[in-house]
């Protein structure tokens, strides 16, 4: 993976949130939205972004980015093997199983 821009890249302002943006985000989330739902969610998402816009309007010079709300670092465990689950139990949860593997529908073009 090549990083081209940070996750904290410019938030779209409310005005910039178009119906096309919502269609795109819905596709990424594999949501099949009706015309009415698109209308509804475009408005709702815009109001969510308004909150971000409030923060973006503040003068944050000298404020360090927050990586995590807890002031804690280095929560680690030792590299020691712990029991895994029984395979029968695991595979019993799957809708479809073949050759001790999870059977999934044909996959096209979404590999990372």
């Amino acid at each position: 993976m090549t990083v081209e821009n940070g996750p904290a890249g410019a938030h779209p302002s409310t005005a910039a949130l178009s119906r096309a943006d919502v269609v795109h985000v819905a596709r990424l989330a594999r949501l099949d939205l009706s015309e009415d739902e698109l209308e509804l969610f475009t408005g709702q998402l815009a109001s969510v972004l308004d909150y971000a816009a409030d923060v973006a309007a503040l003068d944050l010079t000298g404020v360090r980015p927050t990586a995590h709300p807890l002031p804690v670092v280095n929560v680690l465990r030792d590299d020691v093997v712990a029991p895994s689950l029984e395979r029968d139990i695991v595979l019993a949860m799957a809708p479809s199983v073949e050759d001790d593997r999870f059977s999934v529908p044909r996959i096209v073009g979404e590999e990372p």
């Binding site: 073949e98 050759d99 001790d100 593997r101 999870f102 059977s103 999934v104 529908p105 044909r106 996959i107």
Partner: peptide, 8 residues
């Protein structure tokens, strides 16, 4: 492929 099998 018709379907895929996954080993985690």
């Amino acid at each position: 492929a018709d379907h895929s099998l996954v080993d985690y």
